[in-house]
């Protein structure tokens, strides 16, 4: 099982914090989330995505493999303070 948490604007639209899904890659995980929670797949793909606190741009992007117990954090980018 992969644990997924949401942050930023995406959290406001999904309204859930914490879900568990089965997926072998980040791309697969995003597709499942998109279907289950009616979120645009593109919006997910264009978020900042961390796997075990590492940004996927430093891993293998959407092809990053996932293993049981991994944690994904999905955050819509922003700024302002």
């Amino acid at each position: 099982m992969i644990n997924v948490k949401f942050f930023g604007l995406i959290r406001l639209s999904i309204k859930t914090n914490d879900i568990d899904i089965e997926a072998n890659t980040v791309n697969e995980a995003l597709k499942k989330i998109s279907q289950q929670y009616e979120v645009e797949l593109n919006a997910l793909r264009n978020s900042i995505i961390l796997v075990n606190d590492k940004n996927i741009i430093h891993l293998k992007m959407l092809k990053t493999r996932l293993y049981d117990g991994d944690e994904i954090k999905i955050l819509s980018a922003g700024g302002g303070g």
Binding site: G8, L9, L12, I48, L75, G78, G79, G80
Partner: peptide, 14 residues
């Protein structure tokens, strides 16, 4: 979007 919906508070997570 970001500032109206989350305010500057939206920065804590990032």
């Amino acid at each position: 979007k970001q500032l109206p919906k989350l305010g500057t508070a939206g920065l804590v997570s990032i």
